[in-house]
Design a binder for these strands. Structure first.
Lengths: 202, 202
DNA sequence: TATTGTGAAATCGTTCACAGCA
DNA sequence: TGCTGTGAACGATTTCACAATA
């Protein structure tokens, strides 16, 4: 990947979202200044970002073609991929994620959930299995992505299991700090930290 | 606030968590190297971070006092504060947040939730009011913090309302990109972006 | 000797300013 | 003239290396 910082990656995702909206609205050309202001970034930063993308370029005195930008960013981000994801921990958070349909449009399919107690989530066809079947399921389906939504106290153990069974991408929704091998990538989402950060802004 | 970058702020919160755990375990002194490895950061970075905290200092050839560090970080972060928070949008996500007890220990009290339809969440004494009562509630209780968990399509409008009614800190759980006055601080949490970011790590 | 505190160096990311082009 | 592409300046952050010291 061309740029590997999280901020840059998130900017590309924002560009992508805004560009596809513009495309749907029939906008075919846009200047760096306009697109930047829609995306809440500076115009020169946007141009620098675009320069890193193979195939993305604009026309001087005209602007960027929305469709060209869209497809070159999509290509760079491998937006064609489709990944199967398991969810571990079906508390209120986990159950909310099962009902959340936002992942599918981005090529992430939650194929199963796991909890101490198998159960059934209403309005959902995603099965909830017991933890005993975790190993066989992960290995049989060669799952690489997992969302960790267990209680904090269980987080480390469950994460270790997941990794042992072949998971290499972990979205960690628990406050626990995970230590993982270099081959495994973790994204931590900690709502309490976000709130604390808001608290001391200015 | 001494350091205002998000990364730095999150490191301080991590230090705080780990230090309070160490304190509970009866550890009284720890070296930068040890604490750093617990917190997944470099030792010299940790020392630099500590240097920015008024009152925090260690002893050469000995290490840092856990209690001293703990209280100076707490003081710097104003950890004594207590803030009332409203939640807007009681879909599956919002309902999960209402049941989530993690905020309280950090001085955030969810005092009310709002949705198009007032309702009752089981196992919770947090009331869910209709959107009509938003304005009077926010102004009467002088609420500064809100968690935005409405559908994306409603996000901008609701955010504008919240700001108009006095909210200045917004945890945005929707994928919408909000544009707000400088006096208002927004933290965006976008689980889809986090997943996409994991996808292209190496 | 073990460890902090810290200046200097290296790295990384952003913004500026403007040349060059349609 | 309006816009992109980009080198250079700037700023922020991280790492290094080591002097100081309990």
């Amino acid at each position: 990947m061309v740029g590997s910082s999280k901020q840059l990656a998130f900017r590309y995702l924002t560009y992508l979202n805004m560009l596809s909206r513009l495309d749907r609205q029939g906008v075919s050309v846009i200047s760096s200044h306009n697109l930047a202001s829609i995306c809440n970034v500076g115009a020169s930063q946007l141009r620098k970002d675009m320069m890193l993308i193979p195939g993305a370029s604009g026309k001087q005195s005209v602007g960027y073609s929305v469709k060209v930008l869209l497809s070159s960013i999509q290509q760079m981000l491998h937006r064609d991929q489709n990944d199967r994801v398991v969810l571990v921990g079906v508390g209120s958070f986990g159950a909310a994620l099962i009902k959340y349909r936002g992942f599918e449009a981005h090529g992430f399919e939650i194929v199963a959930a796991f909890d101490l107690q198998p159960s059934v989530i209403e309005n959902s066809d995603i099965p909830v299995y017991s933890m005993e079947s975790l190993e066989s399921f992960l290995q049989e389906h060669k799952i690489k992505f997992a969302i960790l939504a267990v209680p904090e106290s269980a987080a480390k153990n469950v994460a270790d299991q997941l990794i042992r069974f072949g998971v290499t991408r972990l979205l960690n929704l628990t406050p626990a700090l995970l230590t993982v091998p270099d081959s495994v990538k973790v994204s931590d989402v900690n709502l309490v930290y976000e709130m604390e950060f808001l608290r001391r802004q200015l």
